[in-house]
């Protein structure tokens, strides 16, 4: 009798199809379509990049690849802390779950902070989407950026900001999402399934960054 009552009160999200919960299937379907959005931007970047092969600036001369590599490392670390949070959730270790989730949010915040720092220093050196003062583009660039950009395609700047900012918005959403999940954990309202679904989104952000970092920063 009590088991029947428990089954009746089981949250709908725990129902399964194809061996996964409805919520998890929905997150995977979202990630599939979100991945296509990223692929649209990446494919556009590749087409513009290959189409302007000879006059594309060398990104390693403009972008600080060491800082970004360190930032990539931070994102990978936050993926590991997320997976640790999931393991703690499975084991019913609420203290561990809180700790690892908080560390994951912290990793996301550090990533965003470094990206803001990167954007602000690039804008300061003249790598930007537009100039409100209406000056010729060649007057935007300063110092070593000027040498790297003169005679090169300004499409580099647009594609760089659009791809990395679209990803940065996903990281921001992920930080908010995980923050909400963390508040739920603090209030005692969480399930292993919800932690795993949140983890899927976070790992997807990491996965996309691996691709974006490789094609935009290192080629």
């Amino acid at each position: 009798m009590s088991s029947v009552a428990a089954a009746a009160h089981a949250p709908p999200a725990e129902r399964e199809v194809l061996g996964v919960s409805n919520g998890k299937l929905a997150m995977w379907l979202f990630l599939g379509s979100d991945g296509m959005s990223f692929m649209g931007l990446i494919a556009t970047y590749l087409a513009l990049r290959i189409g302007n092969w000879s006059n594309w600036p060398d990104p390693t001369h403009i972008l600080s690849i060491y800082i970004t590599a360190a930032n990539t490392f931070v994102l990978i670390c936050s993926s590991v802390t997320m997976v640790k949070a999931f393991v703690a959730a499975q084991a019913g270790d609420v203290g561990g779950l809180k700790k690892w989730l908080a560390l994951t949010v912290l990793g996301g915040l550090i990533f965003l902070g470094v990206q803001v720092f990167e954007y602000s220093s690039l804008i300061h050196e003249g790598i930007k989407l537009w100039d409100t003062a209406g000056r010729p583009m060649t007057e935007w660039w300063e110092g070593h950026i000027k040498e790297a950009m003169l005679g090169k395609s300004p499409l580099f700047m647009a594609t760089f900001y659009v791809c990395t900012c679209f990803h940065g918005c996903h990281v921001f959403s992920g930080v908010v999402y995980l923050g909400v999940v963390l508040i739920g954990v603090l209030r005692g309202r969480w399930t292993v399934n919800r932690i795993e679904i949140a983890g899927l989104y976070w790992h997807f952000i990491d996965l996309v960054w691996i691709v974006i970092f490789t094609i935009i920063y290192l080629f």
Partner: peptide, 13 residues
């Protein structure tokens, strides 16, 4: 990059 993405999808996800 494909190996790394594959590792993340296969194990972390």
């Amino acid at each position: 990059a494909l190996v790394k993405a594959g590792l993340v999808a296969a194990y972390f996800m």
